[in-house]
Design a protein around this nucleic acid. Structure first.
Lengths: 133, 133
DNA sequence: TTATAAATAAGAAACGTTCTCGTTTAGAAA
DNA sequence: TTTCTAAACGAGAACGTTTCTTATTTATAA
């Protein structure tokens, strides 16, 4: 029964892919992946829908790695590790930002905190040996 | 005695400005500020020297805010607050990332940690009232 | 069938950033 | 002083990522 809406609603495919992977892809990575199933998908569609899902809070941005924005379909707070060698972004599910920090920050700034991001930057174990491997 | 090297070494002015401010400026913000004292400074000079200082570790990047890279002349580890309303970035000097997290992350990833960034995102108290003000 | 609105593809445009190249400057050497 | 060299720079072209525009396609309803 997959024939009914096979060449429609690439939008859902974008969200599903983001939720199914832990590679924290860029728009182009999403595009390249979905081209396998939807050969006529366009990069504009990927950007447009990523922006919409981000706006709606269904996905989040991790910021940029070497000038390219990276996305995460897991909107639960968690910590990231960015490898400067291969540009991979991975999760650190066992590390957490203490909850009381939010209150401290709210008190210090007098503002409203929506989220926080904790990112460790370094080199993964594959990249430590060679310059980039 | 300021006349000796007045129209030379804009490089130093860029570093001095970054070290003197806590506004975490973008390249263009640095450019606009230094134009007051050096009307013939070019944006290319600002980008070139920011990249060099970053490479040498004398300044650091905070990542991007709405697609624009922001810089910090304070390379000591500290926490930031980004206001999504006015795009201001401020320091949270009294909040710290627990030191033992580095060891935990190193153990989990098997890699090498060079630094970590903790950033809180929300709205500053001026921006809470109006949509942006 | 016709009408309408949302989703899309294609490519142009915009934007931030980097690169190229010719010029300027400082300092050294003659 | 004049000449030489290397670093710093200004101007603008080039680049890569992201956004926008426009015409087309699709789904749904009338």
């Amino acid at each position: 029964m997959e024939t009914t809406t096979k060449q429609f609603r690439k939008r859902n495919a974008i969200l599903n892919y983001l939720r199914s992977t832990d590679t924290h892809p860029s728009a182009e990575m999403v595009y390249n992946h979905l081209k396998q199933e939807y050969p006529d998908i366009s990069l504009g569609t990927v950007y447009r829908n990523l922006a919409m899902f981000k706006e709606k809070g269904e996905i989040m941005s991790l910021g940029t790695v070497n000038g390219v924005e990276r996305f995460d379909g897991n909107t639960m707070p968690h910590v990231h590790f960015v490898c400067t060698g291969c540009e991979a972004v991975s999760d650190l599910p066992q590390i957490a930002v203490p909850e009381e920090l939010n209150r401290e920050v709210t008190a210090q700034t007098g503002g409203k905190i929506n989220m926080c991001q904790l990112t460790f930057v370094g080199q993964c174990n594959q990249c430590i040996g060679g310059e980039n491997g």
